[in-house]
Amino acid sequence: MSEFLRQFMIVDIFVTNFGTLMQGLVFTFELAIVSMVFGTIFGVLLALGRSFGTRLLSWLCTAYIEIIRGTPLLAQLFILYFALPPYGIRLSAITVAFLGFTLNSAAYQAEYTRGSIEAVGEDQYMAAYSLGMSSWQTIIYVVLPQAIRWSIPAWTNELIYLLKSTSIAYVIGAPDLLTQGKFIASRNYQFFRVYLIVALIYLVIVLAAARLIGKIEKKIEIPGFGYTKNQR
């Protein structure tokens, strides 16, 4: 068998390093899910601030969202990891990863949520006011529940995006799947095989997550809330 084809024999390496790879995978899942949850909460608050806040608050939320979305995630991680220590803020790579991905994801989720808030029609506000609801009651009981429904597809997409993009934590050395891969490769020098394994693991988890999420979305669908997918 040629050397070229032999490079695709990866089962051996996969089995030998299964434990290390799974450790990385667990961290990847943790990072993605935690960032997703806190990013969603912060993102919804940002969207509310932008749509319903005072002029100053709205401007601040907009600035945050646009700046985060306009700069690379890696630059944001670097600022947290390298630029803060001179000011006495020393965060571990793991903390930076959780913080960075949460802050980043929040901006994107805020943007999706804002889109959904704007999709809630004027008639819904009028109807709420006509029942005697205050502005806040209207937002909490009428606008937000609908906006959240519209946002679900974007949010689930965001989870898949996070599963992939958390690999960037590799650059600052947080122990995710890719970092573990590098660790293995730097010992056995089988770069192609190891990274191929890592790529395949990502392929499997991303496709599986997409399928699972599709099923869940179908289950919780409410009539009248058609889904549009956001891409990032």
Binding site: D123, Q124, M126, A127, S130, V142, Q146, R149, I222, F225
Partner: peptide, 8 residues
């Protein structure tokens, strides 16, 4: 005129 029912 357009009902104004809460869609959710």
């Amino acid at each position: 005129q357009d009902f104004g029912l809460f869609n959710h």
